[in-house]
């Protein structure tokens, strides 16, 4: 059962951002908090329920959480088409500062899902004040991510257009300056910034604890997640869970939440004991 309080907040900054603060009734000492970094476009919408459940679960375990909408998304101001991943990294940094100050956090971490995972890594590097990182099925390679979007568009068109399906048309539409990303209009600038994402090449060791979670149908984490975890100098886990960011519907994320909660509890215990967690 969830114990805490939720309140809508406005995160100040160049662009005021809409957020929801999940505050704990029983605050642990020292106070821990997580800022959630949402995935991109339709994946954000599909993952919303799981992110809310996660915030409530972690809050019940004594870790306050801040969920927020990047500029141009959700209830934050701005147009999706005008916003870019670089700006969203700035938004994460603003949310971090806000959470630390408002909740008087001593330990503050980032939890990112899919593209939000990649943005979290960049925000951690830029802010230099993130204590821990949790990455759920992060987008590791931007080009591959966009390639998957093209395949998803091809599959959808193949299923819905019948005899009129023309793969070349789908590919051409995908190559236009402003193109369709699973129903969202995306600018050339955003495409170029996503294409440039390559965590395999760009990641440097993270000074605090980190956890990369590969959400998969397999028992072992895939090579990409293992490699990323090694580069960050942290842990990696495989969680058997359907890709809930791909479809809207009821999902039971127990395995994912349990794995993350256990890891967070280990980090809390280790910090109290003054040693690194295993």
């Amino acid at each position: 059962m969830w114990h805490g309080h939720e309140s809508a907040v406005t995160i100040p900054g160049r662009v005021p951002l809409h957020g929801v603060l999940h505050g704990c009734c029983e605050v642990t000492a020292p106070a821990w908090g997580l800022v959630f970094c949402d995935p991109f476009a339709e994946e954000k919408k599909c993952a919303h329920r799981v992110m809310v459940e996660a915030a409530r679960a972690f809050c019940a375990a004594g870790i306050s959480c801040l969920r927020f909408d990047y500029r141009g998304t959700g209830d934050s101001p701005g147009e999706f088409l005008d916003a870019t991943p670089e700006q969203w990294v700035q938004d994460i940094c603003a949310a971090l500062d806000y959470a630390r100050e408002t909740l008087q956090l001593e330990v503050v971490g980032l939890l990112g899902l899919r593209l939000g995972g990649a943005l979290a890594v960049q925000a951690a590097r830029d802010s230099g004040s993130v204590n821990l990182l949790v990455l759920w099925e992060p987008v590791i390679n931007g080009k591959q991510y966009l390639g998957h979007n093209l395949r998803r568009s091809l599959v959808k068109a193949m299923l819905t257009r019948g005899q009129e399906f023309d793969a070349r048309q789908v590919r051409q539409a995908h190559a236009e300056d402003v193109f369709d990303f699973d129903g969202y209009r995306v600018s050339a600038e955003t495409r170029s910034q996503i294409e440039a994402l390559d965590l395999e090449q760009d990641v440097t060791p993270f000074p605090g604890p980190s956890l990369v979670v590969n959400i998969t149908s397999r028992d072992q984490p895939n090579d990409d997640c293992q490699q990323l975890a090694r580069a960050l100098g942290g842990s990696v886990a495989a969680v058997r869970q359907e890709p809930f960011w791909n479809r809207i519907g009821l999902v039971r994320p127990q395995a994912l939440l349990e794995t993350t909660e256990i890891w967070l509890a280990e980090q809390q215990a280790a910090r109290i004991a003054g040693r690194p967690a295993d």
Binding site: R151, R152, V155, L159, F165, A167, R168, N246
Partner: peptide, 28 residues
């Protein structure tokens, strides 16, 4: 099977079977 499932199969063919699908390969 729906579009999400078919997408998973496409990615599975590429990742696990080492195929590279061309536009013309997308046929129900």
């Amino acid at each position: 099977l729906d579009s999400v499932n078919l997408f998973e199969i496409v990615v599975g063919l590429e990742e696990e079977f080492g195929l590279s699908l061309e536009d013309t390969d997308f046929c129900l």
